[in-house]
Amino acid sequence: MRPRTADGTGRRGSGYRVGRRWVLTAAHVVRDPDGSATTVRFEADRAGEWTAPAHVVLASEKADVALLEITGAVPEGVHSTAEPPPYGAVPDADETLPITALGFPRFKLREDRMRRLDDGSPSQYRDSCHATGMTSVLSNRREGTLELAVGPPGSDPEPDRSPWEGMSGAAVWHEGTLIGLISAHHRADGLGRLAAVRVDRWYEQLTGAELELLRQCAGLPASPSALVPVAGPSGGTERPVSLAHLPDDLPLRELNGLLTELTALPTVRDHTSLALVLDSIDPAIAAMSPRSPALRPDVFGILRTCLRYRGTLDQLLEAIRLMEGDSAGLARVDQEAMELSRRHRRADERR
């Protein structure tokens, strides 16, 4: 979506269509006094692209959520694709949840050399960013937002503009349930951290009339008790074995099995996803590990560093589980972890 500013230029944000004529986004994206100046754009630069004017019918600065009504024509054939999503409540508990979000941040700005402006220079466009990562629920408690750990942009060349500019308003999902909207990038948190307003906090921050409007137009449940309860993957299942008791001077041969299975996982083999995993655990691990361009020595250094910081090896494996999901490779990692734990518990008992 692209609100017009007072000087006639455009400002961009992301959003999600929750009904035939209704779009959710962040309130600060459409902060202009005249909401009718907003244009929404779907399927940008694709065969099914369409745009329409939209009017802001709700904009809560406190909750940073806005509801837009599409006032222009909606093309035939797209009506049935915009059902209200399921909305979820995130527990105030020690949970780490996988999340996804789709938006159009500034760092995805590209040159289209097939299209030229009047002066002959290539036109520009923003491509989509499908951000995947994790949220650690107990972070940002004072602010009341979700902290999202996602893959960072490669660089931050503009000191006065965030590379994430334009991502605000993107819906944040956990396993098909909408749990928030991206609202900010706090530069001090680093390039791999975003903040998102929580759906379950809307019931505290919005007025009764605003909640009723979201209920009627966006399908928001009438009360927080009707939200989908969101829980981490450990809920109701056997908890993975802990490796916190391992000695910090464990030799390489003892780690060989675990190392071999870890380096076979796509999450660990990919530089970006491994960096995201390390960014979501104790920062001392990424800072202190003797990093290597070769995968196996690199992961071995990470494991040895984790052994020196008790409990962080468990954090590492849990973050990898969240990124990897259920897979045969992950099952082999858990089996190696179990065998490693058993061997050293037996050794402790013999002493």
Rank of each mutant, 00 (worst) to 15 (best):
R2H: 07
R2T: 12
G8I: 00
T9R: 09
R11F: 05
G13L: 12
R21I: 00
T25L: 11
A26V: 08
H28Y: 03
D32Y: 03
G35A: 06
S36H: 07
T38V: 07
T39H: 09
V57F: 11
A59L: 10
S60G: 13
E61Y: 11
K62F: 11
G77T: 03
Y87E: 06
E95R: 15
I99M: 08
L102S: 14
L102K: 15
R115T: 14
R115I: 05
D127Y: 09
A131Q: 01
R141Q: 12
L148Y: 09
L148Q: 04
V150K: 02
P152M: 04
G169L: 04
H174F: 12
H174A: 07
G176C: 02
A184T: 15
A184N: 15
A184C: 14
H185R: 09
A196C: 14
R201G: 01
L213Q: 11
R215I: 11
Q216A: 09
C217L: 07
S223D: 07
P229N: 05
P229F: 11
P229K: 08
G235H: 15
V241T: 09
D248M: 10
D249H: 12
N256A: 14
G257T: 13
L262G: 11
L262D: 11
T263I: 08
D270K: 04
L278M: 06
L278V: 03
D282Q: 15
D282F: 13
I285V: 13
R296E: 05
R296H: 04
R304Q: 06
Q315F: 13
M323F: 06
G325W: 07
A328C: 01
Q335W: 12
Q335S: 13
E339S: 14
L340K: 02
R343N: 11
R346W: 15
D348Q: 12
R351A: 14
